[in-house]
C-alpha cells in the first residue's frame, strides 16, 4: 500500500531533470536554487540524526532496565501457564493493544505495527486499543469500528511508569470484558532491526482459573490487583522497548535521508557546473564567430 503510493511521486521526480536539461541555459538559476534547498534539507536531517543518536543511548539504557522489570513480572505468567488456559477456551474475547507513537519520520515503525494488527485481526477478531496517533490513522482505515480507546502524546520522551499505568487504568475502565490483552508493539532486535511482536496478558479471572496459579499460596485473593499490576508492567516494558526501536529507526531514516541529500547535491553540483561551462562556451563561440566575421 505504501509502495504504491510512493511510486507516482517517484516518476514525477524522475521526469523533472529531463525537462530542465531541455530548457538548458535558463535553468542555471533553478539548479542553484534546488541545490540550496537540498543543502538546507541535508542540514536538517543531519541534525535530526544527531538528536536521535543522543536520545538512543538514553532510550537503550532505559530499555535494558525496563526489560528486566518486564521479565520479573512475566515470570509468574510463565510459571502458571495462564495463557494456555485462555487458549483452550472456545470463545475468548481479545483486546488488541497496538502500541507505537505520534512521531513521524522514522521509517516503517508504525506500519509494521499496523500490519501485525491486521494479520492478527484476520486470525481472530477482537476489539482494538491504540497508543499513538500514527497507528490510529492507519488502523482506522481498516477497522474503524473495532477501536475502543486510543491514546496520544505518549512516547515523545522515554515513557514513564505513570503513563503506562494510566493506559492500563483506561483499558480496565473502557472495556472490562476481555479474557486476554494482546499487546502488539515493536521489539528492538538490534540497532538497525526491529520487529512487531505480540505479548499476551491474561485477565484476573483467567489468571485465577489457571492450574499453575493454584500452586501459589495467598492469604487473600490478590488476583485482580495482580493482573492489573502485571498489565501495567507489561505495557511499561513494551512501551520503553518500542520507544527505543522507534528512535533507532529514526536515526537510520535520517542517516539515509542525509546520504540521499548528499548524493543529490553532488549530482546537482555537477549539473550546475556543466550548465555554467556551457554558458561560457556559448559566449566564447559568439565572440569568436563575431571576430571572424569582421
Amino acid at each position: 500500500m505504501f509502495a504504491r503510493a510512493a511510486r507516482p511521486a517517484l516518476t514525477v521526480a524522475r521526469s523533472a531533470p529531463i525537462k530542465q536539461q531541455q530548457a538548458g541555459m535558463a535553468t542555471l538559476k533553478e539548479i542553484d536554487q534546488r541545490l540550496k534547498s537540498v543543502r538546507n534539507i541535508e542540514k536538517i536531517t543531519k541534525s535530526m540524526k544527531v538528536v536521535a543518536s543522543t536520545k538512543l543511548t538514553r532510550a537503550e539504557r532505559a530499555m535494558r532496565e525496563a526489560k528486566k522489570y518486564g521479565t520479573a513480572s512475566n515470570e509468574l505468567f510463565n510459571e502458571t501457564k495462564a495463557e494456555e488456559n485462555v487458549d483452550a477456551k472456545a470463545e475468548k474475547k481479545i483486546l488488541y493493544l497496538a502500541m507505537s507513537s505520534d512521531g513521524g519520520l522514522c521509517g516503517g515503525i508504525h506500519s509494521s505495527v499496523t500490519r501485525a494488527v491486521k494479520k492478527q485481526l484476520l486470525e481472530q477478531p477482537g476489539k482494538i486499543a491504540i497508543v499513538g496517533d500514527k497507528p490510529k490513522a492507519q488502523i482506522s482505515r481498516i477497522a474503524a469500528d473495532s477501536i475502543v480507546v486510543s491514546f496520544s502524546a505518549i512516547g515523545k520522551d522515554v515513557p514513564t511508569f505513570a503513563e503506562a499505568s494510566a493506559v492500563a487504568d483506561e483499558l480496565v475502565k473502557a472495556d472490562a470484558e476481555w479474557d486476554e490483552v494482546k499487546i502488539i508493539s515493536n521489539h528492538y532486535l538490534s540497532a538497525i532491526a526491529y520487529e512487531a511482536r505480540e505479548t499476551t496478558v491474561v485477565s484476573a479471572a483467567a489468571l485465577s482459573e489457571a492450574a499453575g496459579f493454584q500452586a501459589y499460596e495467598m492469604e487473600e485473593d490478590v488476583s485482580k490487583d495482580l493482573a492489573e499490576f502485571s498489565l501495567a508492567n507489561a505495557i511499561y516494558a513494551l512501551l520503553v522497548e518500542g520507544h527505543a526501536a522507534e528512535i533507532s529507526a529514526r536515526r537510520t531514516a535520517m542517516e539515509n535521508a542525509s546520504n540521499n541529500a548528499n548524493d543529490m547535491m553532488a549530482s546537482l553540483q555537477l549539473q550546475f557546473n556543466r550548465g555554467r561551462q556551457a554558458v561560457i562556451t556559448n559566449e566564447l563561440i559568439d565572440i569568436i564567430t563575431g571576430a571572424s566575421a569582421l
Partner: peptide, 17 residues
C-alpha cells in the same frame, strides 16, 4: 508498593514501583 512472588524454583521476584 508492589508485588512479591516466590516461585517454585527457589527464586523471589519483587516488582516495586
Amino acid at each position: 508498593t508492589g508485588f512479591a512472588t516466590v516461585h517454585g524454583n527457589n527464586s523471589l521476584t519483587i516488582n516495586a514501583v
